[in-house]
Amino acid sequence: MKKIEAIFRPEKRDKVKTALAENGFFAMTVSDVRGRGAQKGIQLQYRGKRMKVDLIPKIKIEMVIRDDDVPKVIGTIRAAARTGKYGDGRKFVLPVDQSAMVRTDEFVSD
């Protein structure tokens, strides 16, 4: 089992969700987050004056999937969320030890 944490542009939320669903991935947790990456936010040129917006709104989705599905999920998110410009976001793959249902305490492996 792996956990995917993907952070990307908020306007791509619906597109990513739809693309994942089309590939059979439904379960996810979505949050509104703010953050910055290697470019330290967005620099606005304001008539000679510089203005920095260093925390930019993003969407974070978290989902737990089977190991074999990692490339597919990573690829689906890229295809849906990419614009090619700085600020497209980041994806992380984390190992998951165990996962249990709250309703039954049953441990599930995928």
């Binding site: 967005i42 620099q43 606005l44 040129q45 304001y46 203005m51 917006v53 930019i56």
Partner: peptide, 16 residues
Amino acid sequence: VTEDEEYVGLDISQHG
């Protein structure tokens, strides 16, 4: 406004 200013929103880019 410029593309970047529109992206971060006018609250920040026009009014700070």
